[in-house]
Design a protein around this nucleic acid. Structure first.
Lengths: 218, 218, 218, 218
DNA sequence: TATGAATGAGCCTTCATTCAT
DNA sequence: CATGAATGAAGGCTCATTCAT
């Protein structure tokens, strides 16, 4: 509020452009921390440095703000991830590793990493948002992993496994870290380095997935 | 209204004894479904078939009801599980399998299976309850698995792995099923048979865990 | 609150029965005085001697309270008026006079006399209520007057006039008094005795209505 | 946006002069339709085709706008009416008829015809405005009618009647039409031609007023 | 002069909690 | 023990008003 750079662009204009994402960023933090119902609009406004009424210049209601937080928060990321990772199908194991750590760097380690917790908590209260999230985030993420595993099986690198369940297993530890970071964060078991945890998981996962004929020297 | 005959009423007596758990059962369902803040005491009372005021005869406040739901719901189960499973240390793989499916039968498949979702959603709003849950449920559960894996490593059945992380990995898929059952339940990927999913996980998990020198005859 | 007679009937019970009409009576006064939008529920509750929340035990919303004020306030009166006055058709002039003064005594001079002002002010904001009022109050009132004038014409007592317009003319001065009582009440011209005003109107009205052949000696 | 050429702009000049009355015209329509409290400044600005802030360039507050709507709307008309009709005292009946239809043409049939409804609705919320309206509009209008009736009585054309009340009766049907046009407008009884209604009223009114000795040739 | 983004006081409504019955 | 009418604090939302541009 005091450290605004005085460029030639009028301040008002720049704030106007930035406001919606400033507001939804503040909202995301609080929704993740306390849940939708327990978050007061006062708090969101205060954290964004605006007054309560300003929220209504950009969002029709608390619920609309919630929807926007989910929609606008995660969709761009999925799209860029698809663009970046689709070319790695030649190396299934490498692609799986890349998906996992790209997710961690761009989502899990950022405030967006709270969204899985938020969706878990609010899915039954906002079925429409949950359905959107499922179709546009979960399903698209699963498809990427599915493609990698399928290719690995085709090439004889992986055992023929139940695809659906194996894809689920692949995501589950990453989700686990993201969720616990924003809930039972004090738990020491979660204080471990997330990348190390994911690496450890990948080893067990891939080892369990690989075709057995070829030994995998540790 | 004033002339209620005061005979010996076994039914009423039984109800009186059972009331608290009837109330907390109703509360659990609703807390899991909608979250703590979004659940009204009216609804809980209605679902338990009592009036709103009656809740205050057994619980001091909404928050006390929440605490009771967690405390009284899960603790007895952990204790009986410890008693039943502690004798299986001779067969680490069998013990891991037994833990997983005992948990599913006694917790995951029952209304108590909603507690993980509830704790995830409310941990940051109720740090005391979260700490209680962590110490008395999570840690005790982890210790059982830790014992089995440690014994497996000692006997050369399992590779020497990072214990903490591996224990986490062991629990994560089970938690995942329980959580998603009560949030994104409509997701088809979650409609799969939970036991089958756990079985599939166990295969990959154990295969990834086993010492490599010995082939793993399916 | 302190002068409640201590009869055998429990206080709570009696209040429960009386509350809705106590509340709508308070609401009527304030809606008439300030209009719907300018009336705060705080005021209504305060005037009725209850807290704000109590209003919602009996009415779903401010708007529902408005509807109830109109519906429950005026309908019973119309019905009793129809019952009492329908037998006077033998004496058209007497019936018209009776209608006018019965209306004054039972509506105009009571708090219900504010309803015409209220309906005028809010009809366009609440078209459904306006339509209800029109069909169930205005039209039924008009039919009674219409019957009297028609009979008078049939018997040669009245000139053959435009019925619709004459019925309107009959009601207009009464409405005028009622409306001004609750709006420009300070106007001296309105300080006149209402009964005298109505009597004076009746004379001019009937004199203008009567068949001319028979002189009407003053 | 910054390079607006400062040429001589007759259109803009004209707009600048006309703005206040354009604004109060828009305000009048909405105040009449929805009442003062239920009308938002946003709507008024939108209907006048300006932004919300512009209203504050011409009026200090919403209430000042209300006052201006009444003051500036009706006063010029009364003054021109007085000038035009004061010369008709030689023909009392003609003057009464002229007053009635001049009022209809210049007020009742125009947007100003909504003012009586507005004053009825808001008189108790704005006693100062109501007093102004009473003194400068109502009283001056009454005086014109009073003069005509007095002259008619002096000349033996009219019966000696209660002046105050008869003047009220004279205005009441006209007010009634104006008010209902802006409130219960859907009512079929009000769909009648207003001039015809006023004509019918005049016949009954004058017939009831005339001295009885002289027959009244239609 | 005109704009419209921003404000914040105020209102309707909800709901945990109390208490007379 | 049980009820449910009553309470009042608090939250979502609106809108008259201000002011930087």
């Amino acid at each position: 509020m005091s450290a605004v750079p005085k460029t030639s662009e009028p301040l008002r204009q720049r704030r106007k452009q930035a406001r919606p994402s400033e507001l939804s960023a503040a909202a995301l933090e609080l929704f993740v921390e306390k849940g939708f119902a327990a978050t007061r609009l006062d708090e969101i406004a205060a954290r964004a440095g605006v007054s309560k009424g300003t929220l209504y210049l950009y969002f029709d209601s608390k619920e609309a703000l919630f929807t926007a937080v989910i929609r606008d928060g995660i969709l761009p990321l999925i799209e860029s991830a698809e663009a970046q990772l689709s070319g790695m199908l030649d190396d299934p194991e490498g692609m799986l590793r890349a998906i996992l750590f790209a997710w961690w760097d761009n989502v899990g380690a950022t405030p967006l990493g709270g969204i899985p917790k938020l969706m878990i908590a609010e899915a039954m209260n906002f079925p429409d948002v949950a359905r959107f999230y499922h179709q546009n985030v979960i399903e698209r993420g699963r498809r990427m992993v599915e493609a990698a595993i399928t290719r690995g099986i085709e090439r004889g690198l992986f055992r023929p496994v139940n695809l659906e369940q194996t894809v689920s297993l692949f995501f589950v530890p990453a989700m686990h870290i993201a969720v616990w970071r924003h809930s039972l964060a004090f738990c020491e078991a979660c204080q471990q380095d997330p990348r190390e945890f994911l690496e450890n998981f990948l080893q067990i996962f891939l080892r369990g997935l690989r075709a057995t004929e070829k030994g995998t020297p540790e």
